[in-house]
Nucleic acid binder design. Structure first.
Length: 199
DNA sequence: CAAACGATTTTCT
DNA sequence: GAAAATCGTTTGG
């Protein structure tokens, strides 16, 4: 079933990031249904996290969605090329978010291949936040998208995957974040080959 | 208004 | 392993 608002508004963003592993991210975009199991996430813990866009209460047009209440999407363009999909958590004006970094493709794989302009299905189809968004059809047009009562993007609680261990490690690409770059806020399903490559 | 940069990916050597 | 691709956002003059 689709995750309810109460899941997203819970207080601990680290717990949300861990809980999302194994759940199914679904999109119905341009009339095309695709989905995949979430196998890798990163938590961004608001105003005290130097790696977060909201560090020091920084509030701009780009990161405005982080300040909304939990349960909506924060999508922004990175390196001019990649659309990165985040799940906003916690309550209004507490800018916590979870970056979805990789999926194990589930349904609509032919559609995902076409969006990625790939010929063959392999473990890289949804490995990495940019690739994952592209395969699911997610762009920054879906910034502020409602996820708990949404028509285009939503997440379903499910137990389709075998029981798994969670691997914690430092986040990717946040070397500028000083001491906070060392925080183990990246979570992966142990041994899952669909995860993005580590740095 | 100009300049620098980034929560990345792909390709080339 | 190194570097290019590529552009909206942010910052500084």
């Amino acid at each position: 079933m689709m995750l309810p608002l109460s899941f997203y508004t819970q207080d601990d963003v680290l717990n949300v990031a861990k809980s999302l592993l194994g759940y199914k991210l679904c999109s119905l975009i341009d009339g095309q249904y695709t989905s995949g199991y979430i196998v890798e996430t990163e938590a961004y813990a608001g105003v005290d996290d130097m790696a977060s866009h909201a560090y020091g209460s920084r509030r701009t047009t780009r990161n405005e969605a982080m300040y909304a209440h939990g349960g909506i999407a924060y999508v922004y363009l990175c390196y001019g090329i990649h659309h990165l999909f985040n799940v906003v958590t916690n309550v209004e004006n507490t800018p916590h978010a979870v970056l979805v970094r990789a999926l194990q493709p589930a349904e609509g794989i032919d559609i995902q291949l076409a969006r990625r302009k790939k010929q063959k299905y392999d473990h890289t189809l949804c490995a990495g936040p940019g690739s994952m968004s592209q395969a699911m059809g997610i762009t920054k047009a879906y910034n502020f998208e409602n996820l708990y009562n949404g028509n285009n993007i939503w997440i379903e609680q499910c137990y389709d995957l075998q029981p798994f261990d969670i691997l914690c490690s430092p986040r990717v690409g946040v070397g500028y974040a000083g001491i906070d770059a060392l925080l183990p806020y990246r979570y992966r399903i142990s041994g899952n080959k669909y995860c993005s490559s580590a740095k």
